[in-house]
Amino acid sequence: MSVPLLDVNAQNLPLEAELKQVFENVLRSGRFILGEEVEAFEKECAAALGAKHAISISSGTDALIIALMALGIGPGDEVLCPSFTFFATAGSVHRTGATPVFCDVTTDCFGIDLESAKAKLTSKTKAIIPVHLFGQSSEMDAITSFAKEHGLKIIEDVAQSFGSTYRGRACGTIGEIGSFSFFPSKNLGGFGDGGLVTTESFELCEKMLRLRNHGMHPRYYHSMVGGNFRMDALQCALLRVKLHHIGEYAAGRTRNANYYSRRLSKISGEELILPNDRDHAGHVWNQYTLRVPGRRDELKAHLTEKGIGCEIYYPVPMHRQECFANLPEHSLSNCPISDQLASEVVSIPVYPELVEAQLDEVATAIESFFP
Rank of each mutant, 00 (worst) to 15 (best):
A233P: 10
A233G: 09
L234Y: 03
A237E: 01
L238H: 02
L238Q: 07
L238R: 10
L239E: 11
L239I: 04
V241Q: 01
V241I: 05
V241M: 01
L243N: 03
L243V: 06
H245F: 10
H245K: 09
G247R: 14
E248V: 14
Y249D: 15
Y249C: 04
A250D: 07
A251D: 04
G252E: 14
G252S: 10
R253K: 15
R253Y: 03
T254P: 00
T254A: 14
T254I: 14
R255K: 13
N256W: 00
A257R: 04
A257Y: 02
N258V: 08
Y259Q: 08
S261A: 12
R262M: 02
R262L: 00
R262I: 00
R262G: 00
R263W: 09
R263P: 00
L264V: 05
L264N: 09
S265R: 07
K266P: 00
I267F: 06
I267T: 08
S268W: 01
S268E: 09
G269I: 14
E271L: 13
I273P: 11
P275H: 07
D277I: 04
R278M: 10
H280E: 06
H280M: 00
H280S: 05
G282F: 09
G282C: 10
H283D: 11
V284C: 14
W285S: 05
Y288N: 03
Y288F: 15
Y288E: 02
T289C: 10
T289D: 02
V292R: 03
V292L: 11
G294F: 01
R296K: 15
D297K: 14
E298K: 13
L299S: 08
L299P: 07
L299H: 05
K300E: 12
K300Y: 05
K300R: 11
T304Y: 01
T304M: 08
E305F: 12
E305P: 01
K306V: 11
G309E: 14
G309L: 14
C310E: 05
E311R: 14
Y314N: 02
Y314M: 10
P315A: 08
V316K: 01
V316D: 01
P317I: 12
M318V: 02
H319Q: 15
H319I: 15
R320M: 10
Q321T: 05
Q321N: 11
E322F: 03
E322T: 10
C323M: 11
C323E: 15
C323V: 07
F324K: 00
A325K: 14
N326E: 12
N326Q: 08
L327G: 07
L327Y: 08
L327F: 04
L327V: 06
L327P: 07
P328G: 11
E329R: 13
H330D: 13
H330C: 06
S331K: 07
S331F: 09
S331H: 14
L332G: 09
L332Y: 09
S333D: 12
C335Y: 08
P336F: 12
S338F: 02
S338T: 09
S338P: 12
Q340Y: 12
L341W: 02
A342I: 00
S343E: 15
S343V: 01
V345A: 04
V345Q: 04
V346G: 05
V346Y: 02
I348P: 10
V350Q: 09
P352C: 08
L354W: 11
V355W: 11
V355L: 13
A357W: 06
A357P: 02
A357I: 12
Q358C: 05
L359Q: 09
L359C: 07
L359F: 04
